[in-house]
Design a protein around this nucleic acid. Structure first.
Lengths: 223, 223
DNA sequence: ATATCGCAAATCGTACATGATTTGTCCAAG
DNA sequence: CTTGGACAAATCATGTACGATTTGCGATAT
């Protein structure tokens, strides 16, 4: 038999594709907060039937990205600014732990990659580019715990970041004075990792870093 | 119109009921780890059709309780002891935070309820009843952050505890020497809450408490 | 003993029927 | 002429039955 690249779409059930499609459209803002997900409409639009779409919506429901009401339908979740603050605080604890257990596993080369990302954040800071800054910030933190031995923790982090990305669509959150301090704290954190500091110390630093972001946002919004 | 209590089963779609049924059966061990969830079979057994069951399985998939493979089916997730340790560590961080933000909101009466639960744990300890002890332990911690203002955090805690309960089916985890220290730490924690201690201090205590449990388990299993 | 063919079982997807909710219209009262 | 309510029709979520496709296993033939 020919062993050439077959047209085998191994990862391509309609339910799976629909899930990724809807998810990406929610996260990139195509379906904003409160948007109503109508099955028949989506079915015609995407060319699949309603059943795979229903299954996709169910997964999104457990992900917390949509809210489903019986006999009414599904809407993409809507968040207010206090929930942004809550999510930041939860992320602080999760990230602190993840960063701490991954720190000993990081090679010097990987630390260097993270450091370069932080340098690019400084550039974005110089050029007043909040969007790029935010994206790089996420990239920076994920670079710290990419090789986390706990897969479920990784899934949690991914999920919380996704929620956060989506929330930024409703309430734009960028505290001007905070960005400069943020990159400094990143440098400090990298220093601790390179110095093979104690796990508890690294965890404290990483947690405090994001708690500070949440606090800055708190002061900026609910003055 | 009569406004008396109608027989309105507001929460009663077949998809919802199927979800709760499957979930409870997974958590109480009826469907053990690795159990194969066959749609047609479940459909005949429960009297509903396959579609509501599919939706239920999708939600369980995002909950991390079942694993779905394309064209193969769904199996109940199987965990090993290291994942128990991971989950305990994640729970430690989440519980620490939740306990800290709920502490100022607790009334003396609520503290008293928690204290009574801890007293019952001491009784279970005297009578060598690990099962009751474990159940009470969960009840104790939930009593501390029942009125959490962050609903999503509550959902996360519920989810992680559910995972833990299910894991205990595979690997029975009870470290004899740990239980006595545990109730002492509970008393200490309650003292901090009553004394209106600093949030950071309470968080540290609650986190350290569960980290110690994880560490004890680590020593007991992978000696 | 190995390989190939074929059957059984279960998942995946579609079309259709049903029931609940919302909307829109018409009529009547003020 | 405006307002309020009731009835009707459309819209959409929910559930069922059925067909299509894939996987896994066993039997048969070489």
């Amino acid at each position: 038999m020919s062993m050439g690249a077959r047209k085998k779409p191994v990862e391509g059930s309609k339910a799976e594709l629909s899930y990724e499609l809807l998810r990406s459209r929610i996260l990139d803002g195509t379906y904003g907060p409160g948007y109503r997900l109508v099955m028949d409409q989506l079915a015609r639009e995407t060319g699949v039937s309603t059943i795979p779409l229903r299954e996709a919506v169910r997964r999104l429901q457990s992900d917390g990205l949509v809210e489903v009401v019986r006999n009414i339908g599904a809407r993409v979740a809507v968040f207010d600014s206090v929930q942004v603050e809550h999510t930041l605080n939860v992320l602080a604890r999760l990230e602190g732990y993840a960063t701490a257990i991954c720190a000993p596993r990081m090679s010097p080369a990987q630390v260097q990659v993270s450091r370069e990302i932080n340098e690019r954040m400084k550039e974005a800071l110089e050029e007043f580019d909040p969007t790029a800054f935010t994206a790089l910030n996420r990239e920076f933190h994920f670079s710290l715990y990419r090789h986390c031995p706990d897969e479920h923790l990784n899934a949690l982090l991914e999920s919380e970041w996704a929620r956060l990305d989506h929330m930024r669509r409703s309430t734009f959150t960028y505290v001007p004075g905070r960005a400069r301090r943020s990159v400094e704290e990143h440098d400090h954190l990298l220093g601790l990792i390179e110095a093979k500091a104690d796990a508890a110390e690294i965890e404290d630093a990483a947690r405090a870093h994001k708690i500070a972001t949440a606090a800055a946002l708190h002061r900026a919004t609910a003055h």
